Simulated assay, not measured.
Amino acid sequence: MNYGEFSKRLETITAITVTPFDETTKAIDWDGVAANVEFLIVGGAEVIVPCGNTSEFYALTLEEAKEETRRVTELAARRAIVMPGIGYSAETAIELGRNAEKAGADCVMIHQPIHPYMTTSGAISYYRKVIEALDIPSVLYVRDPHISDEVLVEVTKLDKCVGVKYAINDLPRFTQTVRTIPAECGIAWICGTAEKWAPFFYNAGARGFTSGLMNVYPELSQAMLRALRTGDWETVWQLWENVVPFENLRAKYNNGNNVVAVKEAMEQLGLRAGVTREPVDPLDEQDKREVTRILKSWGKIT
């Protein structure tokens, strides 16, 4: 594989799937998963991430995560890059990564370790161990501001590290990191905090961004990507103003609404999203009304 060419394909919208859970049993609704993947592909998604945080990765059992990866990869049928999320212990991440390889996924996204006692050298060892154990390339997902920039400097030297999903909203720090890591490393920098932050990160070097909004209003996400690529900043900021209320709602309660706001919007549009699993509760009535107001402002419902 030409890793440099592959990383360039990641400079786009990274669409995170939702995992629909049955309202009574909270079992995965696999028909709903299939409908979600098809919606994303029809909406123009070029990179799809099952087992991301919007997919409620940490609410899935390992077997469910493996099955979601297998099914989404099969459903995508090479129409989009499939980048399953993997994580937990290094050995578990490798197990999930090998499952992704066997399923035919194109690459993996390594969730940042959630261990409460992490050192810089330990994080480097974790990422290196997982990346080197897999044949397909890896993208790092970084969201904890306490993680040292040295981790990225070292891990991005690996050939099979092709991208970084950067979800720390510290633009000077991100800019310095991008400028520190040589272009020869061929890293695809991805804004990990969606459309609200995408214009700012784009100017600092992130040519792609993640999106939960793609599950609701893909046309809006795609329009922002086009405007960013063409330098049409008047359009970028008009679109940004439309996006911000929804992303602010998702960020409420220390991002506690992140997934459930997307699911509520999908359900109000007649799409299959199902409920969330613990520890995420349904939206309260006030926030549900806000979802309705936003969808009306977009002309998605009357």
Results as ranks from 00 to 15, higher is better:
Ala204Val: 11
Phe39Trp: 10
Leu239Trp: 03
Val291Tyr: 07
Thr292Ser: 11
Ala133His: 13
Ile94Met: 10
Arg128Pro: 00
Thr235Val: 14
Ser211Asp: 03
Phe209Trp: 00
Leu220Met: 14
Asn169Tyr: 09
Ala77Asn: 14
Asp232Pro: 05
Gly85Ile: 03
Ala188Lys: 01
Met118Gln: 15
Val47Glu: 04
Phe6Ile: 06
Asn203Ala: 13
Ile190Cys: 03
Val275Cys: 11
Val33Ala: 03
Ile13Asn: 06
Thr92Lys: 09
Leu295Tyr: 07
Thr17Tyr: 02
Val164Gln: 05
Gly205Asn: 10
Ser125Asp: 14
Asn215Asp: 05
Asp31Arg: 14
Val155Ser: 14
Ala198Val: 02
Glu91Cys: 02
Glu11His: 09
Ala261Lys: 00
Tyr88Asn: 14
Ile124Pro: 02
Glu247Ser: 15
Gly208Ser: 09
Phe6Cys: 03
Thr210Asn: 00
Leu228Ile: 01
Leu75Met: 14
Asp281Leu: 15
Gly186His: 07
Ser138Pro: 13
Ser211Cys: 02
Val178Thr: 13
Tyr58Met: 09
Lys263Thr: 01
Ala34Lys: 15
Ala45Phe: 13
Gly4Thr: 12
Trp189Lys: 10
Asn215Lys: 04
Ile86Lys: 02
Gln176His: 11
Arg71Ile: 12
Asp281Arg: 06
Arg293Ser: 12
Glu285Gly: 05
Tyr141Asn: 08
Ile41Asp: 03
Thr92Ala: 11
Gln222Arg: 15
Val162Gly: 02
Thr180Asp: 10
Asp170Ile: 10
Ala76Phe: 09
Gly85Thr: 02
Val155Gln: 05
Tyr202His: 10
Ile110Met: 13
Arg229Asp: 11
Pro113Lys: 10
Asn242Ile: 01
Gly212Cys: 12
Lys263Cys: 08
Thr230Gly: 05
Lys102Cys: 09
Asp106Ile: 03
Ser121Met: 01
Asp106Leu: 00
Leu171Arg: 05
Asp149Lys: 12
Thr69Gly: 12
Leu295Gln: 07
Gly299Trp: 07
Arg70Asp: 06
Asp170Asn: 15
Pro245Asp: 10
Ile187Asp: 00
Leu220Asn: 15
Lys288Arg: 15
Leu62Arg: 07
Ile301His: 07
Val216Cys: 02
His146Ser: 11
Glu38Gly: 02
Ala183Val: 12
Leu225Cys: 08
Ala188Leu: 05
Met1Asp: 05
Ile187Ser: 03
Glu74Gly: 02
Val151Leu: 13
Tyr117Cys: 01
Thr177Asn: 02
Thr24Arg: 12
Gly231Glu: 01
Ala77Ser: 13
Arg79Met: 02
Ile187Arg: 12
Pro137Val: 08
Glu63Trp: 07
Val275Tyr: 08
Pro282Ile: 06
Asp287Tyr: 04
Leu75Gln: 11
Pro182Met: 08
Gly274Asp: 08
Ile110Pro: 03
Arg250Glu: 14
Asn242Pro: 00
Arg207Ser: 09
